[in-house]
Design a protein around this nucleic acid. Structure first.
Length: 112
DNA sequence: GCGCTGACCGCCA
DNA sequence: CTGGCGGCCAGCG
């Protein structure tokens, strides 16, 4: 359980966030069976190879804000991607709404 | 092995 | 609203 299994679970959950919606680090952690490990989600996204094409931009923090410095490239990129999907910012904040994925990560998990 | 650094979070002042 | 604190713990010197 110390290998990259956790990363895979996290990547799998992130991949399921629908376009135009967002989720939080903490939420992804919980849904991946890793409660209280929001930081690990950030670590996993940072380590994720670009080829995975994960919708990493759909993951924001629990305050509805992007977790990058306001003037960083990453910040601008994430904001742009979200706006392309129709995500609305009000004073730099995204309104968090509850929603649930229907799919699980079983298919990917047995591969791990 | 050890200390430091986070793409975090909830709680309280 | 902002700020601090403790909890969390994998990665990287």
């Amino acid at each position: 359980m110390t290998d990259s299994t956790n990363f895979k679970k996290i990547w799998c959950m992130v991949k399921k966030i629908p376009s135009g919606r967002v989720s939080t680090y903490g939420e992804i952690a919980r849904m991946s069976g890793l409660p209280r490990r929001a930081r690990l989600v950030g670590t996993a996204l940072r380590a994720a190879p670009a080829e995975f094409d994960l919708p990493w931009h759909r993951v924001i923090n629990a305050q509805g804000k992007i977790s990058f410095a306001i003037d960083s490239e990453r910040f601008k990129q994430q904001k742009a991607l979200l706006q392309e999907e129709g995500v609305v910012f009000r004073a730099g904040v995204i309104k968090l709404e509850d929603f649930a994925w229907k799919e699980s990560c079983d298919e990917l998990l047995w591969r791990v």
